[in-house]
């Protein structure tokens, strides 16, 4: 008799506890639900539809016909599409290598003068391109790079009139010129990220290194860079994705010209879908681009992941 109430009480106690757990789970889902719904509708659904469209030949309106993996076959055999992918890979040098390397140099310079007002000014100036819409940046740069633009005026002033040209209209310089615009935009982001990372490095490490007789370069190579492994990882990932998936800068500056010299997959997808009305082919190229981006960014993530945790 005496045990019964206890058991009853404990059962009663347990029940609310379990219910509470269930409610809190439910509340948790409730909080996540709006974001999840948006994610499902605006990210997952389009990806699934793109996958579906990529298996059909379809002009976007009329009847479609099932072609299986035919569109993928075309993507891998069309030399124009291959060139577009190659251009995107070349752009990685400008969009990733320059901003990360230059960003490291600039960030460590700014860190050395961190206390001065100059550091604040430098930080603002370098981050500014990140605030400007890419379309505006593209327009401004196409003026700068035009045959009568500031860059050619400067070159002429310096006595280099011989090398002046319409940088975005020349087959050999159009892609590098687009790359420079991308580097200019992404440099600020990388510098700021790396600067933030540097502020977390324990100053004692530098002190110890200096006592061991390390100079600024040794410090940079042995302490700064290894400590920034994760930040560098983020920078490289973001910029590689920006290079592979670039659209707006190219669309504004060259529209893929001259003669496809700056054609990139993002622009090709747009042309295929909206001017050639090859929705199936555009979707297939989009899927290939997505896989390419994942194939490039996942190894970077894996390489730069913090091994200690």
């Amino acid at each position: 008799m005496a045990a019964q109430p206890t058991a009853g009480r404990s059962r009663r106690e347990r029940r609310p506890a379990r219910a509470g757990l269930r409610t809190s789970r439910l509340v948790g889902w409730l909080f996540v639900a709006p974001a999840l719904a948006f994610y499902a509708v605006f990210v997952l659904r389009p990806i699934l539809l793109t996958l579906q469209y990529s298996l059909y030949e379809w002009d976007g309106i009329g009847p479609s016909s099932w072609v299986g993996l035919g569109n993928y076959g075309a993507v891998f055999t069309d030399p124009d599409l291959f060139d577009a992918v190659l251009n995107a890979v070349k752009l990685i040098a400008f969009f990733s290598a320059i901003p990360v390397l230059l960003g490291l140099a600039i960030a460590s310079t700014i860190r050395r003068i961190a206390a001065s007002r100059l550091a604040l000014v430098a930080r603002t100036v370098i981050f500014l391109p990140q605030v400007i819409p890419l379309v505006a940046a593209g327009i401004a740069w196409s003026w700068l790079l035009s045959s009568t633009g500031v860059i050619n005026q400067l070159l002429t002033r310096l006595g280099l009139g011989g090398v002046t040209r319409a940088w975005l209209g020349d087959f050999s310089t159009a892609l590098p010129a687009v790359g420079v615009i991308g580097a200019w935009v992404l440099l600020g982001l990388c510098t700021l990220l790396l600067l933030a990372g540097m502020s977390k490095i324990d100053p004692a490490l530098y002190e110890a290194a200096r006592m061991d007789g390390a100079g600024p370069i040794r410090e940079f190579v042995s302490i700064t860079v290894p400590s920034l492994r994760q930040e560098i990882g983020v920078c490289v990932t973001v910029t590689v994705i920006a290079a592979l998936a670039t659209f707006d800068i190219v669309y504004i500056a060259t529209q893929g010209g001259p003669g496809n010299a700056t054609m990139v997959p993002g622009l090709e997808i747009y042309y295929l879908a909206f001017s050639e009305r090859e929705v199936g082919m555009a979707s297939a190229l989009a899927v290939v681009l997505m896989v390419l981006v994942l194939a490039c960014s996942l190894p970077i993530q894996w390489l730069t992941r913090d091994r200690s945790s």
Binding site: I47, L48, Y53, Y56, D59, G62, P63, S65, W66
Partner: peptide, 20 residues
């Protein structure tokens, strides 16, 4: 989920058939 969704989408038939 993605695979199931893909299968579901494919099962619905090709896009754009309604206008025809």
């Amino acid at each position: 989920v993605i695979m199931a969704g893909g299968a579901l989408a494919a099962a619905c038939g090709g896009p754009g058939t309604d206008t025809s």
